[in-house]
Design a protein around this nucleic acid. Sequence first.
DNA 1: TTATTGGCTCACAATTTTGTTCGCTATTGC
DNA 2: GCAATAGCGAACAAAATTGTGAGCCAATAA
Lengths: 130, 130
Amino acid sequence: MRKEQSSNAINEQFLFQVCALNSAISVISGRWKSQLVYSIYQGNNRFHLLSKALPNIAEQVLARQLKELEAQQILLKKIIPGTTPAGIVYELTLKGRELVPLLQGLCNWSNKFAAGAPVPVPAYQAGAGG
Amino acid sequence: MRKEQSSNAINEQFLFQVCALNSAISVISGRWKSQLVYSIYQGNNRFHLLSKALPNIAEQVLARQLKELEAQQILLKKIIPGTTPAGIVYELTLKGRELVPLLQGLCNWSNKFAAGAPVPVPAYQAGAGG
DNA sequence: TTATTGGCTCACAATTTTGTTCGCTATTGC
DNA sequence: GCAATAGCGAACAAAATTGTGAGCCAATAA
């Protein structure tokens, strides 16, 4: 549970006020979270599909992270009628869908500068070999 | 210190392998971190300037976060010669500079969907009033 | 009757992150 | 001799996140 008056929580709130960037980061920064968003985007829109796509995640953790993403309005749950036990489909909201290209941007950025990747050279240096 | 063999650490590594997205998230997700990148980008390139820009951060925490950002090659330190005590300038690397627009994207995304913001309406619904 | 399915909730333990206290460098100025 | 400056490092405490063990629902198949 949150302490609300801890320095930690106060600093978090402070950052939220400084720039919405920090709220965005806090939304996507939990373990599994952005990967879940991306997995759902790819069509793994059921609990067991996500479980299969990310074999290391415990079901309890999966449930918790999904719940948080729902609270943050990144996704929503829809009950599939006439199934037993009732199945649930996870769908990205507009907010969630618009997050995806940003995540892809981060992915590309990370790949570009990964260890072992060819060193990126600024344009004005490229070919300036002597 | 890291435990390396904890489920937590193993899962983190697992996600790093699934997609570079997860490495990117782990780079920017510490408290203060992306705000520091942005502050440096805005010209607060000295320790005391950052301290002033973010009055709530403890100096030791600031030092630690800067050190981590340096280890992740987001920024680098340059000693100002002939000053006493020796001053240090923080500069974004290419990797750091290319992170900035992604952070701005996250900021815009967050603002767009913030509570109180006008509800974004998909194009095909806009004006479909009957 | 018991196991199985799909999706969870709750409480607690393990781990990690964040903040705090103390101290250090080395020079200038009072 | 002592404070101030600019920038930290180490060790520890507080808080937050993540993982784990147990169990629940309600129908249906074995």
